[in-house]
Structures are given as C-alpha cells and as structure tokens.
C-alpha cells in the first residue's frame, strides 16, 4: 500500500473508532498466540504521532501514570509502577507489544496490575457507561504500538 493511502485510512479510522470496519478485530475475537498478535487489530497501520498523544493523555492511555519514558521528559511526573519504556522496541517485537497492550494478562499473567487496553476482561462493577467498552479503540492501540516502535536505545 502506498504510504499516503495508509495515512488517509488511519485518519478516517480514528474519527470513527467504534464502528466495525473491514479488517478490524473485535476485542472478544482477538487471538493472542504465544504472547503475540501478528496482525493489526484495526486493519490499518498506526500513526506514531497520534500514539504519543494517547500515551501521554490522562484520559486515554495514561501510560505515564505507571511508566517512565525519557523521550517524554518534558512531561512532569512519570510513574514507576511498571518498567521504564526506554528502549522497549529493542526488547519486544511489534506483535508482542500489541499483545501486551491489548491484554497484558495474557502475556504477564493474571497478577499484573497493567490494565488490558483492548480487552473486555475487566474488574467487578465497571462504571455503567463503560460496560462493553475497551479503554482504547483498535486504532488507538495501533497508534500506541507504532509509537512504542520508535523507542529504541
């Protein structure tokens, strides 16, 4: 696919994240095999710049709540509940990063405190307006996967 076409698609998809789109995998149909999700869950490639915004945003990924990331040192307050994500792309392949984001428990085990960002396996009594909803949309997952792909040492 020409990269300009990819971009156009990515933009179109972020504006309609909850609609079923050809190539998009619903959260309860995602298959994680050996800690890997090989294919994009949105059917499109992610946009690393959009991913960086989602990563920082308290309302979206809020990844900084738990992870330090030197590439974002201008942001105040990096958490330390999870490991620093410096060089994360050297440690994990994109398919592995995607699986960690979609459902961290499938990779790290049930004890992990990292939320599953595209999973319907949630805790008890989720807020009523969030029932059946994932923290991030399929395209937002792909955007963050693309962003983490830039974090090389």
């Amino acid at each position: 696919m020409k990269s300009s076409l990819k971009w156009a698609l990515a933009v179109a998809l972020t504006s309609i994240p909850t609609m079923a789109v050809a190539g998009m995998v619903a959260p309860d149909s995602v298959k994680i095999e050996d800690g890997v999700i090989a294919m994009s869950v949105s059917g499109t490639a992610g946009n690393p710049e959009a991913g960086a915004k989602i990563f920082k945003s308290k309302k979206q990924g809020n990844c900084l709540a738990c992870h330090a990331n030197t590439a974002m040192k201008k942001q105040l307050f990096h958490g330390e509940v999870g490991p620093t994500l410096d060089g994360v792309a050297d440690r994990w392949k994109p398919g592995e990063i995607r699986a960690i984001l979609v459902n961290s428990k499938a990779v790290f085990g049930n004890e992990t405190v990292m939320p599953g960002f595209y999973s319907l396996e949630v805790g008890k009594n989720p807020r009523k307006d969030l029932i059946g909803k994932t923290i991030l949309s399929a395209q937002e997952i792909e955007d963050v996967v693309a962003y983490l792909g830039t974090l090389k040492e």
Binding site: F77, H78, G79, E80, V81, V113, P115, G116, E121, V122, G123, K124, N125, P126, R127, L130, K133, I135
Partner: peptide, 19 residues
C-alpha cells in the same frame, strides 16, 4: 474492580512506596 481492573492491593500492597 472497574475497567482498569485494579484492587486495593494492586496499589497499596503491590506498589506501596512507588509513584
């Protein structure tokens, strides 16, 4: 509990002392 799937222990036992 909740969409974030955390218990009291997730924060105050497993991660006490961390930011």
């Amino acid at each position: 509990t909740g969409q974030l799937n955390l218990s009291c222990a997730s924060c105050h036992e497993q991660n006490a002392g961390k930011y």
